[in-house]
Design a protein around this nucleic acid. Structure first.
Length: 461
DNA sequence: CTTAGGG
DNA sequence: CCCTAAG
């Protein structure tokens, strides 16, 4: 059952649309990002990408401001100039993506699979030194025997720089039981096909680099519930195929080297960003994505491929794939390398402002459970643990595994809430917290501060 | 690793 | 949100 995604989208009458709504996906770093708030319109950009991936779009009002939050090319310098970013000189991609989509996996039984539909975008504008590769996602989880369980996420474009002109899509389908390592390999395969070799993939969830390749996606928290911005891939120089960067910490010998290495450098890490937006799925008119054929190769760690899933490269797919001019390491090597301490750039966690409802839930939880070290405390890890993998809170269901409000962050939020409640309203920023809640914060804080100094027996009475 | 607290 | 001392 193979259905090209684009065709599917045509049949749903969602095309064409104005590129204007690309604006919707431009995240501003202010407190109230509205990226997630318009699911009906947010489904559009990706579909347009489907059709217009070859179109130049340098006129879009992209903001650079967001650049570091999502795209720290490396960790050492957030205020980098655009020159520091990897660019891709030469022609852009001209590949027409074949068979965008997924295959309904009959052999997978009821095992949930996580599918990501990504778009790599890059600029072919040689002047646009501020652009880089970015992956956007169309994220789907489905169970092959229950099409009603399909939930789909449309991807949207995020910009890294001021211009953005070419797109290349690829699709990844991977079971949640697969390992992070296999996910990396899958993305690697797809990206290598498009960009050429000499690269290596890093996986970032919530901005945190996932280094343990042995864990499964489920264990790591990569799942269909991931929120917007949850999953990123970083594109990094592969040390095995290219000379290491000058100051790579893994290569202490080079630290003292005075030898200029202008043209042999490998590209700095680039984050391939994935943006999800949930949308309503109609199992009747919204069949699962079609298969990308050899793009989605089976992996040792993955569930076995269904028999009907072609392993060999079909002529059509192959032609389409090689149509993209391979951007090899040499092309990338023109870019001045960022002086990063480690190629495994540790990206700052994406800011996730607490909503008022979350604040309310937190206040309510602390009112009931208290702060401090008590075993029933809101911020006591053991008392709130769901599982050791993520440290999510159990006491308050608002903060379930779908969120990333770990006890540490909840603790921090409580701290800032107390601070917020103490300062004047004029000094406050972000989404206003109702005064009523702030009053409760102060009251609760005072109460538990007092209780904390008392022995437990007093509290029980 | 957890907790608390400063940055 | 990050970092880390102290337990």
């Amino acid at each position: 059952m193979t259905l090209p995604l684009c065709t599917n989208h045509v049949s749903r009458g969602s095309f064409p649309a104005s590129w204007d709504d690309v604006k919707l996906v431009i995240r501003d770093d202010d407190e109230n990002s509205s990226v997630c708030t318009q699911p009906s319109t947010m489904t559009m950009p990706f579909r347009k990408i489907c059709y217009k991936r070859q179109r130049s779009q340098r006129d879009y009002p992209f903001k650079k401001k967001k650049l570091y939050d999502h795209s720290s090319v490396s960790n050492s310098d957030r205020g980098t100039s655009s020159k520091d970013m990897t660019t891709f000189p030469g022609k852009g991609f001209s590949c027409d993506a074949p068979g965008l989509g997924a295959t309904m996996n009959r052999a997978s039984g009821t095992s949930a699979r996580v599918a990501g539909h990504y778009t790599i975008s890059q600029s072919k504008d040689s002047h646009a030194s501020g652009t880089a590769v970015r992956v956007t996602g169309h994220y789907t989880k489905f169970q092959s025997k229950d099409s009603h369980g399909i939930r789909a996420y449309d991807g949207v474009i995020h910009t890294l720089g001021s211009s953005l002109s070419e797109f290349q899509s690829f699709f990844i389908e991977i079971p949640e039981s697969a390992t992070v390592g296999s996910l990396k390999r899958r993305v690697m395969e797809a990206v290598t096909t498009i960009l050429g070799g000499g690269l290596r993939i890093g996986v970032l969830l919530q901005g945190k680099k996932l280094r343990n390749d042995e864990k499964t996606l489920l264990q790591t928290g990569i799942c269909h519930d991931n929120k917007l911005d949850a999953l990123c891939f970083s594109l990094e120089p592969s040390l095995s195929q290219a000379p290491p960067p000058l100051c790579h910490e893994d290569c202490p010998f080079l630290l003292t080297s005075d030898t200029p290495q202008p043209l042999t450098r490998v590209p700095a890490p680039v984050v391939l960003h994935n943006v999800f937006q949930q949308r309503t799925s109609d199992p009747l008119t919204d069949p699962p994505l079609a298969n990308l054929g050899n793009f989605v190769e089976s992996d040792h760690d993955s569930a076995p491929s269904p028999p009907e899933m072609p392993i060999d490269k079909s002529p059509v797919d192959s032609r389409a794939l090689v149509a993209a001019p391979a951007l090899n390491v040499e092309a990338l090597a023109m870019v001045p390398l960022r002086k990063s301490k480690q190629s495994e750039a540790v990206q700052r966690r994406i800011r996730q402002p607490f909503s008022v409802s979350e604040v309310e839930a937190l206040v309510q939880a602390v009112e009931k459970l208290g702060t401090g070290r008590g075993t029933k405390s809101m911020f006591n890890r053991k008392a709130n643990l769901i599982d050791a993998q993520n440290g999510m809170m159990l006491n308050c269901r608002v903060f379930d595994s779908a969120t990333h409000r770990t006890y540490v962050y909840l603790k921090d939020k409580w701290k800032t809430l107390v601070h917020t409640a103490r300062i004047s309203p004029q000094q406050r920023r972000g989404e206003p917290v109702p005064q009523e809640l702030l009053d409760r914060v102060l009251t609760t804080h005072a109460y538990w501060s007092q209780q904390q100094s008392k022995p437990e027996t007093c509290r029980l009475l």
